[in-house]
Design a protein around this nucleic acid. Structure first.
Length: 467
RNA sequence: GGCGCCAUGGCCAAGUGGUAAGGCAAGAGUCUGCAACACUUUUAUUCUCCAGUUCGAAUCUGGAUGGCGCCUCCA
């Protein structure tokens, strides 16, 4: 099967054909750094990571850009409330975000541009849009004239003529030709304090949407392959991005628009007032490793709502242990007689894995195939029908699947307490030899208390950390 | 009001016209000093409901019910 994606623009699955053979350019709308990112944010970034890893698995040369929005109304409001400079304020959340990406096992974006480093580019684009008749200025504010862009509303399937002018629109503090026109540049106001830029188009700050047009163009060119984000960004953000980019160049900007559904918690929209709002940090504090969250967030098809529950998180942890135990146990398996069935299992799994992911990133389907594989190989192992060569081939296959999933977790060998654990395991082995099972069980229970799980096998006792 | 998504076993979830993957949980067994790991095995004549199309429907059509989202803050 050929790789295909459901394109939000056409609303159907389309075969993926890159603009440049063998290369894929992807832009993802990154976080606005006014707070710690919540698990819903990470759900969106997560399938972006899977997408990117799978394209690499398919031998594409991938360029992945994820921006950081470091200027917006909330950043101004909250940094002032905390009496911090904008830079100082955002740094906390940028650092936290990068740490979070790391604990969730993300590949680092190839380019991670900051909005405020691209003010010049934004000014140039706004000037160009004015020249081309897509933008106008009123009292130092610049607006995009959506009536000038004939395809406006096409991505979100909105009929702009039929839009009601609601309370939020009329409450806008700036004057505009049309209520639906959106801000490209906001003139300086006293309440902005020291947050402003002096530019050829005046003193002020950029609107939200212009940054993504400028940064995607700068790092990926006027025309690139894939743009991702959450469904809520489809309108107005991505609609506006298209209007800006294409108004500026006069040609198509993005081939495939991918939008992920939201995460809900215990069946309800996540909100602070309901008390079901979680940052990644909240979850980790409850004792779950990042990789457990990764498993849960990535295991559901991205265009389907994901219902986050702690029961689900516990199930994810158990699944993940099976996945990792499989790899660990296979690595230490000495190898036996072959019955020549392993090659077939490997080929079948590889095909099933790729067919599933080729079909618009069906991770659930791919996981089903991988768990079939785990059972098939474990059975061969149990019956001693897997040779050392077959073991190596199975491991290679599994690790190639894991280059996409990244569910493998490692026990650090330089762990400071690992020698202590080894010595306790030795004490337990001695106790077992002396039939002092009470002591042996106590050692095992004590270690479990510290999050260390012991597993006895013919080849001795292994230990692993609880995730 | 307009646009759109979803409903599959106790929980999660794939399958989109050919007779219900997979994971978790639970029960039974093998292994084990006991566990854990692993293996074997049991658990949906049935896919929210009602009609229809078809030789055949979880899958297509119409309707109903329930849940969710977007319609200028939002992943």
């Amino acid at each position: 099967m050929a790789l295909r994606f459901k394109n939000s623009f056409s609303r159907v699955k389309e075969d993926f054909v890159p603009i440049e053979d063998g290369k894929v350019k992807i832009y993802t709308c990154g976080p606005t750094v006014y707070n710690f990112q919540h698990i819903g944010n990470f759900r969106t970034f997560m399938w972006g990571d899977i997408l990117r890893r799978y394209l690499k698995y398919k031998k594409y040369d991938v360029t992945y850009v994820m921006n950081i929005t470091d200027i917006d109304d909330k950043i101004i409001r909250d940094s002032q409330a905390q009496k911090k400079s904008r830079k100082e304020f955002i740094q906390t959340y940028v650092d936290a975000f990068l740490e979070d990406l790391d604990s969730l096992g993300f590949l680092k974006p190839d380019v991670q541009p900051y909005a405020t480093d691209h003010i010049d580019g934004m000014v140039e684009m706004i000037q160009k849009l004015v020249e081309r008749g897509f933008a106008y200025e009123i009292g130092g504010n610049y607006y995009y004239k959506i009536s000038a862009f004939k395809d406006y509303g096409k991505l979100a399937n909105l009929d702009m003529d039929g839009l009601k002018v609601g309370a939020r629109v009329s409450a806008d503090e700036y004057e505009k030709d049309s209520a639906s026109d959106f801000a490209l540049w906001k003139a300086y106001q006293e309440t902005d304090g020291d947050i402003f830029w002096d530019t050829p188009i005046g003193k002020g700050r950029p609107g939200w949407h212009i940054e993504c047009s400028v940064m995607s163009q700068k790092y990926l060119g006027n025309h690139f392959d894939i743009h991702t984000g959450g469904v809520d960004l489809m309108f107005p953000h991505h609609e506006n991005e298209i209007a800006q980019s294409e108004g500026c160049t006069g040609s198509k900007s993005v081939n495939y628009w991918l939008h992920g559904e939201h995460l809900i918690v215990e069946g309800k929209k996540m909100s602070k007032s309901v008390g079901n709002f979680f940052t990644l940090r909240d979850i980790i504090e409850k004792g779950y490793a990042g990789v457990v969250v990764r498993y849960l967030l990535s295991s559901t098809y991205y265009r389907q709502q994901l219902n986050f529950t702690f029961q689900g998180l516990d199930a994810a942890r158990s699944s993940l242990e099976r996945y990792n135990d499989f790899i660990t146990n296979l690595e230490s398996y000495a190898g036996g007689e072959s019955d020549n069935s392993a090659a077939e299992f490997i080929a079948k799994t590889k095909k099933g894995f790729e067919d599933a992911l080729d079909d618009d990133l069906n991770v659930s389907g791919a996981l089903g195939v991988v768990f079939d594989f785990i059972r098939d190989i474990n059975r061969l192992k149990a019956e001693n029908k897997l040779s050392a060569d077959e073991r190596d081939n199975a491991l290679t296959a599994m690790l190639s699947f894991d280059s996409v999933l990244n569910f493998r977790y490692h026990i650090s060998s330089d762990d400071s307490d690992s020698s202590e654990i080894e010595s306790l395991i030795q004490q337990r082995a001695d106790a077992k030899k002396n039939k002092d099972f009470a002591l042996a069980d106590k050692i095992r229970a004590d270690l479990l208390e510290q999050g260390i799980i012991l597993e006895d096998s013919r080849d001795g006792t292994k230990w692993k950390k609880k995730v």
